[in-house]
Amino acid sequence: MKQYLLNRMLSGVIVLLGISIFSFALVHFIPGDPVRIMLGEKATKAQVEQLREQMGLNQPLPHQYLTYMEKAIQGDFGTSLQTERPVIVEIMERFPATAKLAFAGIGIAVVIGLTMGIIAAKYKNTLLDFMLMAAASIGLSLPSFWLGLIVIMLFSVQLGWFPIAGGTGWKDLILPACTLGVLSSAMISRLTRSGMVEVLSHDYIRTARAKGLRESIILFRHALCNVMIPVVTVVGLQIATLLGGAVIIEQVFNWPGIGALAIRAISARDFPMIQGIVLLMGFVYVVVNMMVDLLYGLIDPRVDLITEKEGR
């Protein structure tokens, strides 16, 4: 177990190193002089040279990368070009809002997705199943920003039930969280349905029915546990994505999270901020993935982490 954890951590570190190289290289992908582009046309030569010096862009590349990493490990991601405040402070200020939205959204997605998937599987090949899965298909094809706009138009503008956008209170959370939840539930419900349909055809389910167990116990204890592995994987991936900021939804609802910060930084070409956010996303992804791996063993005791390691 320890060996397995160590291996997972090692591969996590490798992914993080790769992402650090990618985020470092971003500045060097910019066609032309990156400093000139970041500061805009009006910047004086002295300003350009000063920023070049400040970002260490006049040093050799390996030296630049090592300095960048040395600072990043100490939590110093540089200073935002827009606000002139430390990148890490800006990101940390916005993280609670993003986390609140991510967990609320995923919570709703899991409840809706599992319910839809279980019902569709239970009433397989009926009109209900067809309608639920058609809804899931539409959910997968809906642009998140459009659903967001329609929801605002309907519930905030027309009915006036919720504030239009901009706050971080609980009432402000409901619409963006529901939009995220509905969209993410589409994938979960499809996975749950296909898994449940397969499991419900197994002999042990027939045995459970034959001995007169209640249908709810059969569905939730005997069947659902066995379809949770792919569901947990997808939920984990979605949490990792959303914790890095539900970029589009945050923008639509004016939610002051990391996603909105990312868009602002990109529009202003604030590279220290963009690099910081990319690194953070990589870090969140690695941590969440590791937690999901550990969860597998808890959900399904047959998944032995040691043998899984050997299988890889």
């Binding site: 790769g18 985020s23 994505t241 990109i266 992804y285």
Partner: peptide, 13 residues
């Protein structure tokens, strides 16, 4: 490890 849209955004940046 980076969500597709973020990777795309970083490249657009």
């Amino acid at each position: 490890a980076l969500p597709g849209i973020i990777l795309a955004l970083a490249i657009v940046a």
